[in-house]
Design a protein around this nucleic acid. Sequence first.
DNA 1: CCGTTGATTTGGAACGGTCCAAGTCGCTCG
DNA 2: CGAGCGACTTGGACCGTTCCAAATCAACGG
Lengths: 352, 352
Amino acid sequence: MGDPRTGIGRPTTIVDIARAAGVSKSTVSLVLKGSSLVKTETRERVEAVIERFGYVYNRGAANLRTATSSFVGMVISDLTNPFFAELAVGIEEALYQLGFVPILANTNEDLERQGHVLRSMREHGVAGIIMSPARGTDAWTLANLPARSMPMVITMRRILGSPLPYVGPDNQAGARKAVEHLIGLGHRRIAFMGGFASMTTQQERIAGWRDALLAAGLPFDEGLIFESMPTRDGGKKALEAALATPRPPTAVFCYNDIVAMGATRALSTRGIRPGLDVGVVGFDDIDEAEHNAPPLTTVSADTRAMGARCADSLLGLIRGSGAADMSYTGETRLVVRESCGAPFAARKREYA
Amino acid sequence: MGDPRTGIGRPTTIVDIARAAGVSKSTVSLVLKGSSLVKTETRERVEAVIERFGYVYNRGAANLRTATSSFVGMVISDLTNPFFAELAVGIEEALYQLGFVPILANTNEDLERQGHVLRSMREHGVAGIIMSPARGTDAWTLANLPARSMPMVITMRRILGSPLPYVGPDNQAGARKAVEHLIGLGHRRIAFMGGFASMTTQQERIAGWRDALLAAGLPFDEGLIFESMPTRDGGKKALEAALATPRPPTAVFCYNDIVAMGATRALSTRGIRPGLDVGVVGFDDIDEAEHNAPPLTTVSADTRAMGARCADSLLGLIRGSGAADMSYTGETRLVVRESCGAPFAARKREYA
DNA sequence: CCGTTGATTTGGAACGGTCCAAGTCGCTCG
DNA sequence: CGAGCGACTTGGACCGTTCCAAATCAACGG
């Protein structure tokens, strides 16, 4: 057993405590879980010994018997993306509140790695998994995962055809709001920028963009879609592609904030003033968005709350609720700052 | 036991496999660890059954017996800070390679929370902990942690007086390089911006700043230190404070990239051109740095590699190496981009 | 035909908890 | 005075592995 002073040696167990306190291990176990069955005097004696020995509860051993686990797998596709970092923080915080402990895996969009970590997590006995799937994950892969038949919620990237509960923002409605705002500002030629058609998130955001266009009686022109990696660099390239076009757009609605930041930056370096000469709006409302030059108008999905919602849904699943009931589509909110040209439009009105 | 088809019911154990394969559980255990002791024919038979039953190895049970663990605690002070996100990714990646599984906790700079997660991790039987301590963590706290006497490496924020191994960049040398570069560009009034004197990291970076100043025969003026939160907003405020001064600096060396980004942004909104009118340099070289307006000159510490180094050091500690030997100070490298005024200076030379 | 050897296989005690049926103890009540 | 009761306490099986000493088996040499 561990020496109370040095902490050296075999770690102290419940049996050591029992012996030292002159009770049975059952009683110590009872004390540990704060049962009202044990006499106050006994409890105090045991607690004193626990304190003196610096005893550490072995949750793993306990879980073996009860066949439960307080671990939850948190599989993130790209943690260096500030959006996913924020999501991860939301999930972690909520799990902590619920008494769960997150095991982290950053798949870095690697399907093979994703398979590995899923298997590893299962072996480590997680109670469930929250996953933002790597690009390319499809329903079939998901259904044949080593981790099938374990509680799992998918977040942020909908997998068509998968029965797993999905938690994410209402991309279509959010995109529509953003584009309607641009239209309200007087824009008539609005491009969509970033992402690829294979991403369900892009599909949904494009659908919202088209909805807004069509509702305003504007033409839906596929030529105004500029695909790119969903990165700053992608935004830059997409914007350059748009500018190289015979009739460049007067505003761009971007796949996400990162793309929008790349786009505003590319505009600036060419001497075109984002927010004044060209309207730009993003999606996600990451922290950096308000510090961009100019501050980004964007669609907020309340990422942290979404993370909390993932944890709630997983808990529901673990407790036995149906997968369908645990899906959740979050409301979105348009955050108007300067990149869309709102202040410019306002100023125009002011002097008109 | 779990039904091979539906996966419903009690999970399959090694004993179920043994029974079905007509061998003892010892043999199955041997097969599982790829022992050469079992006959090929037997191995194949057992493996077939394992496959058919979709058996999942229970690492927790195994660890109970062997008193080992493949968990490592990863305690991060602020995961929404892109620098720490990058560090976390580096650590996670390295741990994964080494066969460890990271348990994540984001303390959000909360000391109480830090105490909780450390205790929780110990109960969950982590093999060791890698921690970027929350602000305010001191040697005394660390020494009296519930997790004392467990392998632990501290990263990115040195705790004075603690015997724990520390992994971090050479802040002083890095800062000195940055300021020397600024001096070489012709700057004579160089401010230090961001962080607080209570942070060891700030102390080290300020020391480097002073070293460079003194080595160049420039006065070391405490009035040129503008403290602030190490955030974008802090950078903005610090810069405004500097501008409100009778003799504003012509260049600023910032506590980190985030502060520098806040500073460049504040400059821009006041019509002062960062990189042309005022030199700005950051520290950390986060991903965003090169996409800033203008791209940030900064000191790179190779954050990912630093994360890997944390994992290596922890492994060393677990294997029994002395704490002192596991400390590591990483080389830094100045990354010259545009914010320091280098291109401006170059242009000046060009036309001179 | 038996002892020996090397190759395989195995039984059962750990590991550190939880759980529950059963036990102990001091009182009260008839 | 003994049964009954409530308050506490306890022994020992059990969770799913690992480990090791011992058992089994087949083949070989004498």
